[in-house]
Design a protein around this nucleic acid. Structure first.
Lengths: 253, 253
DNA sequence: TAGTGGTCTAGACCACTGC
DNA sequence: CAGTGGTCTAGACCACTAA
């Protein structure tokens, strides 16, 4: 521990632990030494050690379980692919999400938390050009892989396109929804995805099992029909440090 | 200040300040009250206040300048667009980056920091299928808008495609590079972008003027030619909390 | 110089886990 | 119960900024 360094001591501890993890001294799934133990080793106060570990938490390198210890993250970096060129998504019954999970060798599971009609958030209402009292169908889902929570999905469809909540039952994923929208003459032909990173709200952090300091992706996908009307909007929330988003396209000459 | 709350005091202070900022009590560009002042108001220790402000920093809501104060961020959320459907990028001489900035009403500026030949990082070498001693052309650029640093771009091209560093001079942005690759028979026809979020290294944090706790986007764009060979890889680093990435495509029926 | 934020300590207490 | 992490304080000192 270099006391003269311009780098603060807790940062040096964080750097040291980070290096140790990357070297494999603390393999994924194992716990770091306890804070009092680290304090002893580095000759520092527990408060400083706690702060060093907060740095590693913010980086997604460790996950702390109160009363148990600081676990080295088993880097479950998942790849989420939007393939946009010719080889498009197959028309199987299963969702793109399920396809992606299976490709990664994981068992997907989706829990349909809520189907209802609501007055949507302002951003969504504006997108659809809805008045303040107009309602949308809402589908709120929790998605898992191997029982690990991975993603929150909330989809909105204006009632004028949806007709009734029956559209969403049983839960069939977006593919099913799109087929039913197509039957009603609102087949999506164009999509946009907007990606934002922000701090999670407490509920999101709890579900995704991350601390409130860790960023999440908020991906807004909008499906647009041939008349250029947005017919569905879907908000996905993912732990940003555990995902890699991928897009692929062919440049038209 | 609710001392009995399960929510810790520094979190309550952070919540309170966050609400005040969103209400407009502390407009963008202004400073928060000093830490000793806040400590007095909330009846807490300065250490706790400091911690509360660390939360807001991690969220990108405030930017702290040592010795000066904690400034409320003038949320310069920039939109970076990949338009993938028919109306493709115009073949003007200027880069996609410059186009995007002008669309947002900002004056772009690019600084060519370095043009050289190097042995690339392992990830890049693997992508190109290069041996451990094979070199690539490297173009390292810093990009600004209104003199605010916005983006770091590092592009790699295997020497077998580039021929010499002349390819990169003068700096013309990717469009120019792609034209010259086309002249050499390696016109890119397909692209992939992979988006990751991670903690910045100290140099990146310093250049982007963010604290080390704030996440950055690492966007890896790979250009692929008609023979399915990757011919260029470009790594972009952006402050994740200040950007919104946007993709748009047409679904083939 | 005075005012700002950043770090550190010693010691305390609490909440949670698991035996 | 002992061991874990989480929070808080009082007080101190440092580094940076601005007058």
């Amino acid at each position: 521990m270099n006391l003269e360094s311009p780098r603060s001591r807790y940062q040096q501890v964080a750097d040291d632990l980070r290096d140790a993890i990357k070297r494999g001294d603390h393999p994924p799934g194992s716990t770091l030494p306890s804070q009092p133990e680290l304090a002893r080793r580095y000759g520092l106060n527990q408060t400083s050690i706690n702060r060093a570990i907060a740095v590693l938490r913010a980086e997604g390198l460790v996950r702390v379980e109160h009363g148990r210890g600081a676990y080295v993250q088993e880097i479950p970096t998942v790849k989420r692919v939007r393939r946009i060129d010719k080889e498009h998504r197959p028309h199987t019954g299963s969702s793109a999400y399920a396809e992606e999970m299976r490709k990664s060798g994981l068992t997907p599971r989706t829990e349909l938390v809520r189907v209802d009609t609501v007055i949507p958030p302002a951003e969504i209402a504006e997108l659809f050009g809805l008045g303040e009292t107009e309602r949308t169908l809402i589908r709120h889902r929790h998605m898992f892989a191997e029982d690990v929570p991975l993603q929150i999905a909330t989809s909105y469809i204006p009632m004028s396109y949806a007709g009734s909540t029956d559209l969403a039952l049983p839960d069939t994923g977006p593919t099913g929804i799109y087929s039913r929208l197509a039957e009603r003459g609102h087949e999506p032909v164009r999509f946009t995805e907007e990606i934002e990173v922000r701090a999670p709200d407490p509920a999101e952090a709890r579900f995704l099992r991350i601390s409130e300091g860790q960023p999440v992706f908020e991906v807004l996908r909008v499906a647009i029909d041939a008349q250029d009307r947005p017919v569905e909007a879907c908000v996905n929330i993912l732990a940003a440090l555990q995902w890699r988003l991928s897009y692929s396209w062919r440049q038209e000459p």
